Computed example of a mutant assay.
Amino acid sequence: MTSLLDPNAVLNRATERLAARFEGIVSAETVERVVFESYAALGRTARVTDLLPPLSEHFAHERLTALAQSKGLVAKPHPEVLFVCVQNSGRSQMAAALTTMIAGDSVHVRSAGSQPGEFILPNVREALTELGLDLTQEYPKPLTDDVVRAADAVITMGCGDACPLYPGKRYEDWDLDDPADLDLDGVRRVRDDIRARVERLVSEITPS
């Protein structure tokens, strides 16, 4: 179903809200560019166009925060971890959710895909629901330079060299099966493997 609202008008209002929130940190022109870029990027894969404007505002907010952090304009109270896989519909989503479960507020987590898919895989949702983790507010997001620059640790999973390398960051590549090719039991095994890796990562990057 197509929204009766003019997307440009909705995005302009989102730009105004974010420009006010980031006033003195990021220019209004940059805010506008990031909002409309985010809308265009998500629109390449989104199935439900009615959700695009609010998702675009959320995604733009994350990108603007990351941009400000990478330039030292906004403090990073906790380590920033970025998980990247190909579609951001399986492995990286599981890693992000499990990190939040294990680390709580002591780590800030983002996830992205080098070629984001249309939706989070149903078996991934089911495997995380079994642990009490809800992904209803999550969605596949494209990989952008700003979130890489803001990260302290970048964990890749099957996306090759799609992620740019910057000095001073921790990079790891986790060799994991793609949940898209697995049944629910297979996804559970990947989930448990990721959980063990996340527990190690969190113990190493957070203060004791």
Rank of each mutant, 00 (worst) to 15 (best):
D134F: 06
S56W: 00
D178K: 12
L82D: 11
Y166T: 00
P122A: 07
W174K: 12
A127D: 12
V109C: 12
T65R: 15
P77T: 15
L184V: 09
Q115S: 13
D146W: 01
I102M: 08
P53S: 07
V84M: 06
L184R: 04
L184Q: 11
T129H: 07
R170I: 13
F59D: 02
D146Y: 01
A180V: 13
R63K: 07
L128C: 07
S114L: 05
L67F: 08
K141P: 00
P79C: 13
L176C: 05
Q137C: 02
P77Q: 15
Y166K: 04
L184N: 01
F59N: 08
P140N: 12
F83T: 04
F83W: 12
A180R: 11
P179W: 08
G168D: 14
E62M: 11
S92C: 09
P122D: 14
H58E: 13
G72T: 14
W174C: 08
P116Q: 09
A60V: 00
C159N: 09
P79W: 14
S92F: 07
L98T: 10
P116A: 10
P167W: 00
G168L: 11
L135G: 09
E138I: 04
K76Y: 12
G117S: 11
W174L: 12
V147M: 11
E130D: 15
V147A: 06
A103H: 03
D152H: 15
M157R: 04
G104C: 12
S114E: 08
F119G: 00
D161F: 02
H58I: 09
T65V: 15
S70F: 03
M157C: 06
L121N: 13
G160D: 14
P122S: 11
R170C: 10
R149N: 02
Q69I: 12
P54W: 00
